[in-house]
Simulated assay, not measured.
Amino acid sequence: MNDSFEEMLIHTYEFEKVKDIRPFLCEYWTTSFLLALIYLILIFMGQRYMKDRKRFNLRIPLTIWSFSLAIFSILGAVRTWKYLGALLMLGGLKNSLCHHGFITNPTVRFWSVLFVFSKIVEFGDTAFIILRKQQLLFLHWFHHSTVLVYTSFAYKNGGAGGCWFMTMNYGVHAVMYSYYTVKALGLKPPRILPMIITTLQITQMFVGASVGILSFLWRKDCACHNSEQYLFWTFAMYFAYFALFLNFFYQAYFRTVQTKAKVKAKSQ
């Protein structure tokens, strides 16, 4: 796509016109494996450290943390959703899957770089769980560690659907971290809100897997330039996340309700 068409999709602000550091990120993308390993080691060390200690409250730091990530995610969602929405209306679904604007358009490239780095920052979520001695789910640490590696890998390959993956994640995190902020403040949001957030996460993973399938089917119809290896790992990752979040949804919102109903019936 030419520059004039790109300008039609979204206006680029001056602060978004930064130097392209994608070559640097592409060269050192394998560092993500080391960072993921360090993250897992720190989890083990942190849990051992807190084993015989009292939990920290951390309400104020957690509020600031969640609010900061909520604002960041909202801004990222607004900028990238506007671009993807315009791309869909002007070029259609197939073109949006094969489009490489997230590494060529200055605006989306800016938010793409921040998106990659945010996956390192989000490791801090786990620190709060450990220091507050909350239950650390397999889904949590598996998702955080693998999503950093995949995001670095996908950005390095400039693969099809990259704009979709990033845009959906920004949107879901905007809602999720806003909810965490309200919770950290000690307020009581509607009980159905956590279920809605998990539903959004499941939908995100389903759409992500679908994008991987469509990218494979349409790889010869447009200039996608994707390797089968990239498409395989895209589908595998999103399918794994879909299954894990679906299981979490069942365990958290259905099995718990069934268990409470059985206990109530026995007590009567």
Rank of each mutant, 00 (worst) to 15 (best):
M1S: 15
E6I: 13
H11E: 14
F15K: 11
E16P: 01
V18A: 06
I21V: 09
Y28G: 00
T30W: 01
L34K: 10
L40D: 03
Q47L: 11
M50L: 07
K51D: 06
D52G: 12
R59G: 07
L62F: 14
W65A: 08
F67N: 07
F67M: 10
L69R: 11
L75T: 07
V78D: 04
L87H: 10
M89F: 12
L90Y: 12
K94Y: 10
N95R: 13
L97S: 13
I120S: 09
L131F: 12
L136W: 05
F138Y: 08
H140F: 00
F142A: 04
V147N: 09
L148C: 03
L148V: 05
F153P: 06
F153W: 13
A154Y: 09
A154C: 09
Y155C: 01
A160N: 02
G161C: 13
G161M: 11
N169G: 10
H173W: 14
H173E: 04
S178T: 08
Y180R: 03
V182E: 00
L185M: 05
I192K: 11
M195A: 12
I196P: 07
I202N: 08
I202S: 08
I213V: 09
S215C: 10
L217R: 06
R219I: 14
D221I: 03
D221R: 05
C224G: 15
S227L: 06
Q229P: 07
M237S: 09
Y241N: 05
A243E: 06
F245N: 13
Q258V: 01
A265W: 00
